[in-house]
Write a protein that binds this DNA or RNA. Structure first.
Lengths: 335, 335
DNA sequence: TTGTAAGCGTTATCAA
DNA sequence: TTGATAACGCTTACAA
């Protein structure tokens, strides 16, 4: 692989001049420039980005930490990040944390060790203090997380409003006996969605009934179980709101196995608007989580703050995205 | 950030010695070692991996190119890659090609420019010749692709056998009027699956009927359309085999809109065993594509060949994975 | 077992 | 507008 040195020799100029035409940040005469360019193509020269990074202290890479690599949410977020970063000729180094504090921390260490210029983090387990410390060492954007002192660097969905929207929709369709199946309560998003549910209930003067609550783990199985558990308690409900689409899907299965006709006998609303939501039968009414948009926004913040990029077509930074109701066929008016 | 130089000063040893304890590849007395280690922790020293890479000519990073970041298949493949690479303390630089030749090529250039130690490629559009050229420049493993001269570096699914399995299953359930909805024929995997379908038919002495064939684009919509198109031709069929699960899902929707009861009136089999396959109603019978395993295997090849890693718990390299039938509820015996 | 010093391929500061 | 040359932070012969 040719180096800058060989290019300079072939072109009959100095190293510095070659570097200048590469970065065109300084005046170089047209004549010299074309000599250099010729030499480059002749040698098939490609700059060694490692050497560039060492010398310039910029790696043009941003570290991304997600919980999992599969799954609709992360896929979309990463999509938003990648598409935006690619345009800017930066790249992604990706790691996973599996919602485990140890793994999340070591992944972050790893990313810092790789000298990423910035970090985009989707973490569940690392503490706020830790995150504050990290963002002092390296520009960091947090997705799905709210840390007060880092507010401008946090991108999140208004989960509470989303939970509110979902239940409100059910209420507006005449349902009053509404069960709620939450995700793990220690996850903020899960918690907030549930709070939103309660608010909507309150607004309609319905007292929250503990017996209509079930806590799952965001996986399909727990949704399946939730239906059976709820049913076994012998209390009536005409609709269930779920903390996410996976659990909703599991419950649909259980409901059908119990002979219910959907949505006639039971209305169901999910959360996330996962890719498969429209594949379900009946097609799942749910709340869109703006995953792609959040990934894109996180990236734009970095492009702007870290890479000083101008003319990004962002009118303004949105830190809290507003969830939207996506009406499909799994909710029907209460008879 | 502390450098190796500061550590050496504080510990009262030379640069070389510090480097030695970091890489522990040479004898260092216990006493010196602990002096160095102390200095390191005292300074909160973290090696600069960029400098390490430049000096050692190893970046410990492997470049990965996939078509999309979302979608079940890629998610699982990436999962297999990441989990394996992480154990080895290597990392992933990820790019996307969107099945477009230009984008795929530039992504590869990008990866090479980043001095990745190896490449894992999932490409549709780049030519075999190009791939051969690339793998001469940098160790490369191809997933979902077969290039003769690169056979040991290709990981793929036996798509033809998968297509065969799917249709055979239908035949064994007594179906004889079987429609086939393929993906784009220019995609090898899609093509091969279709060939497998034909083989199974042949084996049962059924002549392939052009009127029972429809070519979609692997997306849900085209599956939806496929059902209506097939129906409009006025030919009977009691089962449909699909090139992937998404299209199967779309067709299920269309079938139901046409008043069919599934699977009683129509048996359906998919391909891929996408995450959502079990969420569908009826749960989709399909062919598992071993995505995770393929990602893992690709990584193991690199760990072994490039990073000379011993004791990988791989009994042997598998280049062609065997698809497996996953029986669920969308196929029923033909009355 | 430890130290010295020459790279690795760039960028960036001075002079010229 | 160009050219020397010193960093950048590490690895790795070669000596001691």
């Amino acid at each position: 692989m040719a180096t800058i040195y060989e290019v300079s020799k072939l072109a009959g100029v100095s190293l510095a001049t070659v570097s200048r035409v590469m970065n065109n940040n300084a005046k170089v005469s047209d004549k010299t420039r074309s000599k250099v360019l010729d030499a480059m193509t002749q040698l098939g020269y490609r700059p060694n980005s490692i050497a560039q990074s060492l010398a310039s202290n910029v790696t043009n890479s941003v570290g991304v930490l997600v919980s999992e690599l599969h799954g609709g949410f992360f896929g979309l977020v990463m999509n938003g990040i990648e598409s935006e970063l690619r345009l800017a000729n930066k790249h992604i180094i990706i790691t996973t944390g599996h919602s485990d504090e140890g793994q999340e921390k070591s992944a972050i260490d790893f990313l810092i060790g790789r000298k990423c210029d910035a970090l985009i983090l989707l973490v569940d387990s690392v503490s706020d203090e830790e995150l504050i410390k990290i963002s002092k060492a390296i520009p960091t954007v947090l997705i799905n997380r709210k840390v007060d002192t880092l507010a401008e660097r946090c991108i999140s969905l208004d989960n509470e409003y989303g939970g509110y929207l979902a239940t409100k929709h059910l209420l507006e369709q005449g349902h009053t006996d509404i069960a709620y199946v939450a995700g793990p309560d220690w996850k903020v998003d899960s918690h907030d969605r549930f709070v939103g549910h309660q608010k909507a209930l309150q607004e309609h003067n319905i007292t929250f009934n503990e017996a209509l609550y079930y806590q799952g783990d965001f996986n399909e199985n727990s949704g399946y179980e939730s239906f059976n558990k709820l049913k076994s308690r012998g209390i009536n409900f005409s609709a269930i709101a779920f903390g996410n689409d996976e659990m909703a899907s599991g419950a649909m299965k259980a409901a059908r196995e119990n002979g219910l006709i959907l949505p006639k006998d039971l209305s169901i609303i999910g959360f996330d608007n996962n890719m498969f939501a429209s594949y379900l039968y009946p097609e799942l009414t749910t709340i869109d989580n703006s995953a792609y948009q959040m990934g894109k926004m996180a990236t734009d913040i970095i492009l702007k703050d870290v890479y000083k990029q101008k003319n990004l077509n962002i009118s303004k930074i949105i830190n809290v995205f507003e969830p939207k109701l996506v009406c499909r066929n799994s909710v029907t008016p209460n008879a």
